[in-house]
Amino acid sequence: HSLRVHINGKDFEVHNADEHVIRALEELIRRGADADELKEFLERWKG
């Protein structure tokens, strides 16, 4: 899957995101994670 996440006016393109990554991202958003947390998660995932 390809996923586009809009954080703090920046678009993050997440390519080849598997279900696990997408679910983790949705969980963060549901918990009310702020932009920094989401960005950190995506950067860690992209490795």
Results as ranks from 00 to 15, higher is better:
Lys46Arg: 09
Glu26Leu: 15
Leu3Ala: 04
Phe12Gly: 00
Gly32Arg: 05
Leu38Tyr: 03
His6Ala: 04
Arg23Met: 10
His20Ser: 11
Glu13Cys: 14
Ala24Pro: 01
Glu27Ala: 14
Asp11Arg: 08
Leu42Asp: 00
Asp11Val: 15
Ile7Glu: 00
Ile7Met: 04
Gly9Cys: 01
Val21Asp: 04
Asp36Ala: 09
Val21Lys: 03
Arg31His: 08
Arg30Ala: 12
Leu3Lys: 04
Ile7Ala: 02
Asp36Phe: 09
His20Glu: 10
Leu28Ile: 07
Leu3Val: 15
Glu43Ile: 15
Glu37His: 07
His20Gly: 10
Ala24Ser: 07
Ile29Met: 09
Ser2Asp: 11
Ser2Cys: 06
Glu37Cys: 05
Leu28Gln: 05
Leu42Gly: 01
Val14Glu: 01
Leu38Trp: 05
Glu27Lys: 11
Ile7Cys: 02
Leu28Lys: 03
Ile22Trp: 06
Gly47Cys: 10
Trp45Ser: 03
His20Arg: 12
Glu26Pro: 00
Gly32Leu: 04
Asp18Gly: 06
Glu40Ile: 13
Arg4His: 14
Asp18Trp: 03
Trp45Gln: 03
Lys39Gln: 12
Glu27Ser: 12
Asp34Lys: 07
His6Pro: 01
Arg23Cys: 04
Glu37Gln: 12
Ala35Lys: 04
Asp18Met: 05
Asp11Cys: 13
His1Met: 06
Arg23Ser: 06
Arg44Ser: 11
Ala17Val: 14
Glu26Gly: 06
Asp11Leu: 15
Glu13Tyr: 14
Glu27Arg: 11
His6Leu: 06
Leu3Pro: 03
Arg44His: 10
His6Asp: 03
Ala33Pro: 04
Glu37Gly: 05
Arg23Gln: 08
Arg30Asp: 06
Glu43Asn: 12
Leu38Asp: 00
His15Ile: 10
Gly47Trp: 12
Glu26Cys: 14
Ile29Asp: 01
Glu13Met: 09
Phe12Trp: 07
Leu42Asn: 01
Arg31Ser: 08
Arg44Glu: 05
Ile22Leu: 08
Glu19Tyr: 13
Glu19Arg: 09
Arg30Phe: 12
Asp11Tyr: 15
His6Lys: 12
Glu40Val: 13
Val14Cys: 02
His6Thr: 14
Glu26Asp: 06
Gly47Asp: 09
Leu28Tyr: 07
Asp18Ile: 03
Val5Arg: 01
Gly9Pro: 00
Glu37Pro: 01
Gly47Asn: 12
Leu25Ser: 00
Arg31Gln: 10
Ala33Met: 07
Glu26Asn: 10
Ile29His: 03
Glu27Leu: 14
Glu26Ile: 15
Leu3Asp: 06
Ala35Ile: 15
Glu40Ala: 11
Val5Pro: 00
Val5Lys: 00
Arg31Met: 10
Ala33Glu: 02
Phe12Asp: 00
Ile22Asp: 00
Arg30Met: 12
Glu19Gly: 07
Arg23Pro: 02
